[in-house]
Amino acid sequence: MSDKGLLEQLNRTTETLSHSLTNLIRYSSISRERDDDEHETYDVPESIAKTSTAGLMMVNAQTAQLVRGIQDLMVMTRGIREKWLLTQIPDEKTDSQQDLDLEKCARLLEQWEKEVLGKN
């Protein structure tokens, strides 16, 4: 995934997170919602059905969304780490092997020959 894609995903996920947190807080509020113009004038106590829906389903859903968002974030970090690890480009200067001292090696090989053949 490109950097831009990652950034977009990050924005999306954080937005979802804040949304679900706000929703969660809204659902947890005890004061009755009066912004509903349908029931503006009536002091209707919430029905059991509405209570259980709002209370259980919504809170659960929002919580699950919160959790999923955070998991998404973690998956993203892993993706970034993998990307970092797998796309390392070897640095020519620091990584190149030490140059062999060819002459010294040749001498060593000669010495090997002598030693093995017992010419010493």
Binding site: Y27, S28, I30, G55, L56, V59, N60, T63
Partner: peptide
């Protein structure tokens, strides 16, 4: 509400 929040 309390119960659902607790679960959450």
């Amino acid at each position: 509400k309390l119960r659902s929040l607790e679960e959450s």
